[in-house]
Structures are given as C-alpha cells and as structure tokens.
C-alpha cells in the first residue's frame, strides 16, 4: 500500500471496499432521483461506472478515461431524455465522493489520495453536466425541426386554388420553408391562386410583412396570384401604424372572402340551389327542380 502514486493507492482502496461504496452510492442516488428508476438499475449503472473509475485511478490502461467519459455521456443523455433535472443528474456522480468520504473519514493517512480522487470526481461531474445540456439542446433542436415540418400544411381549397394556413410566430426560417412549400405545391398542382391565411399569426411586424411580400412576389413570378387573408383587427392596426404597404396585393378579412375572390378570378360562380318543397311528393321530400314543370319526381 505504501508504494505507487496517490491514484493507484486510492484505486486499491476502492477495489477493496467495492461492495460497501457501491451500496452506499446507490442508496444516495436512489434517494436523489425519488423513485424514478429502480435500485437494481441504478446499482447496475453505478457498478459499471465504478469499475471504470477504479481503472482510471490505477492508471493501468489508457482507454479507461475515454470509456468512462463515453459511459457518462450515455448516462447523461438517458437522464436528459427521461426528464431528470441537471442537479439530479450531476448528483449521481457527486454522491460517489460522499459515499467514499463516509468510509474513509476515520483513515487519516489517505488524505492526499482522497483529494486526488475528489478532483477526478469533480471533473466527471462537470463532464456529466456538459453532456446533459448538449443532450437537452439536441432534443430542443429536434423538436423545433419537427414543429417546422408540422406547422406548414398547404391545402387545396378548390381546383386551382390552394391555401396556406399559418399558425404561430413567423421567423425567417419558417417563412423560407412556407415559401418553398407554397411554390412547390403551385408547380405540382398547377394551381394559379394561392391564399395565405394569417389568422393564427399573433403579431405582424415589418420583418414578417417583408417575408409575406417576398412570398407573394415569388408566387407571381410563377404566374400565380396570391391573396392574404385573416388579418385581425389588432394586426391591421399594427400594419397601418408601422406604415407597411401591401401595394397591389389583395388582402381580405377572412379566408371565405379570399376564396370568393379567387373563385371570381378563376371565372367561377357559386349560386344558391333552389331548394323547394317537391310539389309531386306526398312525403314532402326536398326536390332539386327549380319549378313544378321540370319536376320529375313521380307521384
């Protein structure tokens, strides 16, 4: 025991007291995560980490440090996905120090060894924290990508008329996606009218307006006409007070008005069917004939 570096002596000590330390470590971690994982699972994970820590401390092989970091990465990513808080994740590593300290407290001659060990655990804790936040950032990026995909449907309203209902805040990335999708759909379906409905857009500032104008200009270059609909009262006020000019782009209050305009441009007319009581039917069924003379329902 009195030969070798503090690291190897500590490694020997840890190897000798393996069961006790892991047992106490598991207890501390399980208490920290409040029953979200079982004790057996935690013991399994910590057992693997523990043997890696011992290998790193003993300095016997060079791969141990990398392996330990990879194992911690994996653990932190799992914790981040399962919704643990950062401190709950970091406590998993830091409580190893506490577990060892409780054991080592009465052996006064191991102080330098304990300090070296403590430094190692601190490093590992910081590493855990970094891995945890990297995993969380990845999750957030994935989610916003998924939201982008979901949030831009292009729907067909009529033959040759398509609509893009926009919901949520518009930023450059999203507008770009909307523009591309709208133009692709225009080309794919051969539609020559597009309605951009902004009922679900909470605020329109100069940037958003600029994006909308660009989209309309690009659609015009393809030979399609665009109408902007669903401008709410507050949005209208903002647009006017910001001095935004929509120029010769048609704007309508509701999607229905925009559809009516597009139908008119397409040369289509919606007429009300003349539903009357069928004169020939005793049951009083409805009949589609506009007049008695054309009714073909047999009595």
């Amino acid at each position: 025991m009195d030969v070798g570096t503090p690291g190897t002596r500590m490694a020997d000590y840890l190897r000798d007291h393996q069961d006790k330390v892991i047992g106490r470590w598991t207890e501390l971690v399980v208490a920290g995560v409040r029953g979200r994982t079982t004790a057996d699972e935690v013991r399994q994970e910590l057992g693997d980490l523990y043997s890696l820590v011992v290998r790193v401390l003993s300095g016997a092989d060079d791969h141990a440090a990398g392996e330990l970091r990879a194992a911690l990465d994996e653990l932190s990513r799992g914790r981040a996905r399962d919704g643990f808080t950062p401190s709950e994740t970091a406590v998993g590593v830091f409580s190893l120090k506490e577990a060892v300290y409780e054991l080592i407290a009465d052996t006064a001659d191991l102080v330098p060894e304990y300090l070296a060990f403590s430094r190692l655990v601190d490093d590992l804790g910081l590493h855990t924290f970094e891995a945890y936040s990297a995993a969380r950032e990845q999750i957030i990026a994935d989610q916003s990508n998924a939201m982008l995909e979901l949030s831009t449907p292009v729907v067909r309203l009529w033959d040759g008329i398509i609509a893009v209902p926009l919901v949520g805040t518009l930023d450059s990335a999203r507008t770009q996606l909307v523009m591309e999708k709208l133009l692709d759909t225009l080309v794919a379906t051969g539609a020559d009218h597009a309605v951009i409905d902004i009922t679900g857009v909470p605020t329109v500032d100069t940037e958003v307006a600029q994006h909308l104008l660009k989209t309309v200009a690009a659609a015009r270059l393809l030979g399609a006409e665009c109408t902007i609909s669903g401008i709410r009262p507050q949005v209208a006020q903002t647009i006017v007070s910001l001095g935004i000019e929509f120029g010769d782009i048609a704007t309508k209050a509701t999607l229905a008005d925009a559809l009516a305009l597009a139908l008119k441009h397409a040369g289509l007319k919606v007429v009300q069917a003349l539903w009357i009581r069928c004169p020939s039917s005793r049951s009083g069924r409805r009949c589609s004939s506009p007049s008695r003379s054309t009714c073909r329902t047999t009595a």
Binding site: L183, L186, A217, A218, R220, L221, G223, A224
Partner: peptide, 23 residues
C-alpha cells in the same frame, strides 16, 4: 419558372415588370 428560380429572383429584388408569367 422553377420555385428555386422564383425565390432567387425575389431575393435579387427583381419582379420582372412588363413581363407576364404563367405556370
């Protein structure tokens, strides 16, 4: 005109005045 071309022309600030466009 292809969508990518239309986007490029818009970004360049060209709206092809005096020319009509069709799909």
């Amino acid at each position: 005109m292809r969508p990518a071309v239309a986007i490029t022309l818009t970004e360049l600030g060209l709206s092809l005045r005096g020319v009509r466009t069709a799909l």
